[in-house]
């Protein structure tokens, strides 16, 4: 399971599950609270993945426009379906949210490196859509009581699959509407990271400002934190060099290949 070198720089030598391209049928879509949040259900691909890995999706109907496929975390995969949880933020996500059942999507995956999930206690920090990669992880975890989750969201809770994760987990959600709410949330993030640091592994995914706060406290408490970053991607396979992030060694590495999950103390956000 451990795909990272212990210590040292960002590991560039190992790649887990070999990715492939497949054409998968849309089984259906389910909206969550509004048309802007959609669960997309696809035929399950044959490959296995680790949580935090992602797929590039491109409906066959796109022709040459939009040009790029779009990257999404794998929310959950069962024998019946692969689920992608999408928030509509632009043209590509809008088109994906409107995919008809039976239509075909080109899927490349599993891509990148997911979270290393050790056996001990886990603290999951999710901001908004950052909840997506954790749903399957929590549902399939053998000891959900060992997982704590702090979920921050700016839109109503009904849009997110928060309740769906196992009830045995220690779950906490915080709604941020005002600037003050954001400050309080940042404070709570700091407290949780500090308290949990000696106990186990922390996994985080969310928007950049959120990740910056997490990283700040992770470094201050010397906590073992893995963060998943979102970058603009064209190819998804390490070829275009569009998605790079800067490491502590001032190296630019492709987040589609060596991420999207990185140790919080290895990259500059």
């Amino acid at each position: 399971m451990n795909r990272f070198k212990d210590g040292g720089q960002v590991d560039k030598n190992t790649l887990s599950n070999k990715p492939e391209c497949s054409s998968l049928k849309v089984l259906g879509t389910a909206y969550a609270g509004s048309g802007d949040f959609v669960h997309l259900y696809l035929e399950p691909p044959l490959w296995e993945f680790s949580p935090g890995q992602f797929v590039m999706l491109r409906p066959e109907s796109w022709g040459l426009d939009p040009l790029w496929p779009r990257p999404f975390s794998i929310c959950e995969k069962t024998a019946e379906y692969m689920r992608i949880f999408i928030q509509v933020v632009g043209r590509g996500t809008r088109l994906l949210s409107l995919c008809d059942p039976g239509s075909t999507i080109n899927v490349t995956g599993p891509l990148g490196r997911g979270f290393r999930v050790p056996e001990g206690p886990l603290l999951i920090l999710a901001g908004g859509m950052g909840i997506a990669p954790f749903l399957g992880l929590c549902k399939n975890h053998p000891y959900p009581q060992k997982i704590s989750m702090l979920f921050g969201h700016r839109l109503a809770l009904k849009h997110y699959p928060f309740e769906e994760s196992p009830g045995e987990m220690h779950k906490e959600s915080m709604h941020q509407v005002s600037e003050d709410d954001l400050k309080t949330f940042a404070q709570v993030l700091g407290e949780r990271i500090r308290d949990f640091a000696p106990k186990g592994e922390i996994l985080a995914c969310g928007p950049m400002p959120f990740l910056k706060v997490v990283q700040k406290y992770a470094l201050a408490c010397k906590a073992s934190v893995q963060i998943s970053v979102e970058t603009r991607m064209a190819c998804g396979v390490g070829a275009c060099l569009g998605c790079v992030v800067k490491t502590n060694e001032e190296e630019m590495v492709q987040s589609c290949l060596y991420g999207p999950v990185f140790a919080a103390d290895k990259i500059v956000l």
Partner: peptide
Amino acid sequence: KKGNPVPRIAETPCGMLNAI
């Protein structure tokens, strides 16, 4: 060579811009 700062790519109608 380290290349340029990000964002380095942008999608355009039927095309893209890059400044890798």
